[in-house]
Design a binder for these strands. Structure first.
Length: 880
RNA sequence: GGGCGUUUAGCUCAGUGGUAGAGCGCUUCGUUUACACCGAAGAUGUCGGGAGUUCGACCCUCUCAACGCCCA
């Protein structure tokens, strides 16, 4: 086959992916003895679509999976999707809304049918998009958090945690989302800074018309639920009022004035109203003082029957207005301050969260997290970068019970039943529950579980737990988890809690936490800002390989990634470069040859490039072992472009034209071999273009693919230091000549002569060996050794012991050459001065390690040698 | 208010206790039959400010500042 002149990424991508998937190479083999390499994919929302975060996350996972598959591991990347309770229900409710329907009118069953339909319709979108990225998870095991077996695991876990006393029902204040009519967890609350007011309201004191007490509040409507006023016990202003009763305006209820440290004398008026049913701090104060709790809201955050008649049924912010108006009329609204404060909002709904007293299910997250901390400290699970471990510990210290019930319909319905007295029975099914409550009429808990409850089980529920499957046996614990730091607390820790509790071991050995993908200006991408870059658009424009390489090359640990098209464009150019290099190889019959043995190579240039392949391989391996994706990418990029294309192919061009046949044959073999290695090294990063080239550069068997080929592995003895030194010399000579030519404005088209002065025997040998290469790459007419006197009017450059003379009298500008030489000398003298200062420092000489001293001394000698040669060149110039 | 992170070339960012690197951009030159999505050469930095540790600091410590994120 002949490679097309230009690469057609869209065509290659769709064709190659189909072949990969059909080949069955993504599938894990629990029945085989091969060592496993397991990654659990963070399941994206089933109805979602690919964003840059997914692109980053999945690229990194796929690199590790492909790399380990090539290294002979049983690579198993577990894919799947999450039912995403609130998010999905919200989407479907919005659709219903447009049809003028409400889920309450449809009923639970009909609504769920509708959600399943939506899931069936849009559920394949995200997995299709992951395929476009080139991801190779084991699709045959694709799971969904609401699959029957995963749901079974959820029920099992719920019941067991209940039995273990780690899950319980409790009446507490929750973060209530009035839009969803549901409790949400602390983590789902987003505190937003907003402009608001601090209202100062005067309360009368019972039996003392002369005294009043002024409290400050940002939420005056909650005064209808006040059950106390708190003052600081040390606050002299109010000491005498402690124990007296105040009168709540409007509803004219009597409430005690209590002493509590919570009241901050510095803050507001120093006196705070206490509404235990609607504020987390007040709730604690209420418990301390055994205050009654008056709930004044319903599930819509509308005022309920516990408030004066004229307020009942009012929306909370309307009620606030009315109250303020009434307070004003009563002339007890004494002051209004404009302030900025943080107000809790639902991260999904965007509405203000109301602390609300309800019965909910809680998991004792604190208790379950203790073994997690121990496991991390013991190194059973290691976080990369490490600093997340400490952050995790701090967070665990402040852990609150995890509210796991949600008043939604889409999700895992809680396996709990109530009898007519409200007694609860937790069981795996109704039959079991009934056994616990013989003869009683049971009703099932209407609520569902937090989405993160089921995703916390992901590392083992997807492998068949609670059955003892071969998969579970082989793939748990997983090797690596790659996810964003923003869901450490939502997901990573909860997986660890559940994994340790139910499997007796951590779910993964390493957790790589990547940063966020931002726009080019460093801002978070969001629909409202309109700065979202769609990965699919990027793929269409530059190809999936370019996007993947951008992600990998940008993934420096602990730093956000600024996404810009220019960067992707640069890596698109890299794919083109590789493509063209392969075309060149094809045109020159430099393709992989059967039976080529890199250890048998005789030509130094070939020995050198083989050694460079090995060095690059090691660099990539080391970088990946440390999860430094940017370094690994850089190593393979640099080798391919900077070493193979820029030097090796250029070195060998003149030889392919003129050298003896055996040399040509060896070059062809070596070039083909190196190309083959590059394709392997690059494959995890750029799977499509490499696969396509691999298929085209040699005859391949039906099932022979890079996807399942082997990662390069050769003995380090193939690195030939003498060859590296020799080629280093060659590169220095060529660079020097090119540099002076350019400095002196010698036209590239001008073929000039090179005369070498003071050449050592080795250099003489090299000059003769590489004459053809030097001529072509430095654009020379002839290469010779100096005999007799050095020509005066010429450009000179120094490489090691030798002086390179370019006698081009008619082409050079004497002043310019003088200037160039003087500049070089001046710079070297400056270096020597600095080195001398160091060497003159007695403390440096006596304290610095020997090899450093040696290095500085050598540096000086070398610089002096150079100066001498340049000075000679300069004086000859003057003499001429 | 607490915590974390960032501050290095015009831009985006790597980096190491021993005389600063990449990509992009910029300048000059170039149509040598893989590639102009290219090649060659080049310019540009008191490595945020200050102090300390050290023979030696961009790197370690302290401090200040700016910016960002998270939590209260």
């Amino acid at each position: 086959m002949t490679l097309e002149k230009t690469i057609n990424t869209a065509e290659i991508e769709s064709r190659q992916y189909k072949e990969w998937e059909a080949s069955g190479a993504f599938t894990g083999h629990p029945e085989k003895n091969t060592a496993p390499y397991t990654i659990m994919m963070p399941p994206p929302n089933v109805t979602g679509s690919l964003h840059m975060g997914h692109a980053l996350n999945n690229t990194l996972q796929d690199i590790m999976i492909r790399y380990n598959r090539m290294r002979g591991k049983d690579a198993m990347w577990m894919p799947g999707t999450d039912h995403a309770g609130i998010a999905t229900q919200m989407v479907v409710e919005r659709q219903l809304d447009q049809e003028g329907l409400k889920r309450q009118d449809m009923g639970r069953e009909a609504f769920l049918k509708r959600v399943w339909e939506w899931k069936a319709y849009s559920g394949g979108t995200i997995t299709g998009q992951l395929r476009r990225l080139g991801s190779t998870p084991d699709w045959s095991r694709e799971a969904f958090t609401m699959d029957a077996n995963l749901s079974k695991a959820v029920v099992k876990v719920f019941v067991q945690l209940y039995k273990d006393g780690l899950l319980y029902r409790d009446k507490r204040l929750v973060n209530w989302d009035p839009k969803f009519h549901s409790a949400i967890s602390d983590l789902e609350v987003e505190n937003r800074e907003v402009k608001g007011h601090m209202w100062h309201i005067q309360y009368a004191i019972e039996g003392d018309k002369a005294r009043t007490i002024t409290i400050a509040t940002t939420r005056p409507e909650t005064m209808l639920g006040d059950t106390a006023i708190a003052v600081n016990p040390e606050d002299d202003r109010y000491k005498d009022l402690i124990g007296k009763m105040a009168i709540v305006p409007i509803c004219n209820r009597l409430i005690p004035i209590v002493a509590d440290e919570y009241a901050d004398p510095e803050h507001g008026s120093g006196a705070v109203k206490i509404t235990p049913a609607h504020d987390f701090n007040d709730f604690e104060v209420g418990k301390r003082h055994k205050l009654p709790m008056i709930n004044i809201f319903d599930e819509n955050a509308h005022l309920n029957e516990n408030v004066p008649e004229e307020y009942r049924g009012m929306e909370r912010f309307a009620a606030r207005k009315k109250i303020l108006k009434e307070l004003e009329e009563l002339e007890i609204l004494v002051k209004v301050d404009n302030i900025t404060h943080t107000v809790p909002h639902g991260d999904r709904s965007g509405v203000v969260i109301e602390p609300y007293l309800t019965d909910q299910w809680y998991v004792d997250a604190k208790k379950m997290s203790l073994p997690v901390v121990d496991a991390i400290k013991a190194g059973k699970t290691e976080f990369v970068p490490k600093n997340w471990e400490q952050i995790t510990f701090n967070w665990v210290d402040n852990l609150q019970p995890w509210c796991v019930s949600r008043q939604l319909w889409w999700g895992h319905q809680i396996p709990a039943w109530y009898d007519e007295d409200g007694k609860v029975y937790v069981a795996e099914n109704e039959e079991e529950a009934q056994k616990q409550a013989p003869g009683k009429k049971l009703t099932r808990d209407e609520d569902v579980l937090d989405t993160w409850f089921s995703s916390a089980l992901w590392p083992f529920s997807t492998l068949g737990w609670p059955e003892k499957t071969p998969e579970l046996n082989k793939y748990y614990p997983g090797d690596l988890l790659i996810t964003g730091f923003d869901i450490i607390f939502f997901w990573v820790l909860r997986m660890m809690m559940m994994g340790i509790h139910f499997m007796g071991d951590v779910p993964f050995k390493k957790v790589y936490l990547h940063a966020l993908v931002l726009d080019a200006k460093g801002q978070k991408m969001s629909k409202s800002k309109g700065n979202v870059i769609d990965p699919l658009t990027i793929i269409d424009k530059f190809g999936a390989d370019a996007l993947r390489f951008t992600m990998s090359a940008s993934a420096a640990q602990g730093r956000d990634i600024r996404m810009s098209e220019e960067r992707v464009e640069g890596y698109r150019n890299f794919t083109t470069k590789l493509w063209n290099a392969a075309r060149y190889c094809e045109m020159n019959d430099c393709l992989p040859k059967e039976g080529f043995d890199p250890s048998k190579v005789k030509n130094v240039i070939n020995q050198w490039i083989i050694g460079e392949v090995l060095k690059a391989t090691k660099d990539i391996e080391d970088a990946l072992a440390a999860y430094k994706f940017n370094e690994a990418s850089h190593a393979v990029y640099q080798f391919t472009w900077g070493t193979f294309c820029d030097w090796y192919l250029e070195f060998t061009k003149p030889l392919l034209a003129d050298a003896p046949d055996d040399v040509k044959a060896e070059i062809r073999g070596t070039t083909g071999w190196v190309l083959d290695q590059i394709l392997r090294l690059l494959n995890p990063f750029m799977p499509y273009v490499t696969e396509e080239l691999y298929a085209n550069i040699a005859k391949r068997g039906k099932d022979e693919r890079l996807l399942t080929s082997e990662w390069p592995s050769y003995p380090a003895s193939l690195i030939n230091n003498a060859a590296a030194e020799e080629i280093g010399w060659l590169q220095r000579v060529i660079s020097q000549i090119r540099s002076v030519r350019s400095d002196m404005n010698v036209p590239a088209s001008a073929r000039i002569d090179l005369v070498v002065q003071d050449a050592s025997e080795t250099t003489k040998k090299h000059i003769s060996t590489y004459e053809a290469v030097l001529k072509q790459m430095a654009r020379l007419n002839s290469v010779s050794l100096l005999t007799g006197k050095a020509p005066g009017r010429s450009i000179k450059a120094v490489v090691d012991e030798a002086t390179l003379i370019l006698p081009i009298a008619d082409l050079i500008d004497l002043d310019k050459e003088r200037e160039r030489l003087n500049k070089q000398i001046a710079k070297l003298q400056d270096d020597i001065r600095k080195t001398d200062e160091k060497l003159a420092n007695q403390q440096f000489v006596s304290n610095a390690p020997a090899e450093i001293l040696e290095e500085f001394r050598n540096r000086k000698v070398e610089a002096q040698g150079l100066i001498d040669k340049l000075a000679t060149a300069l004086s000859q110039l003057e003499a001429a």
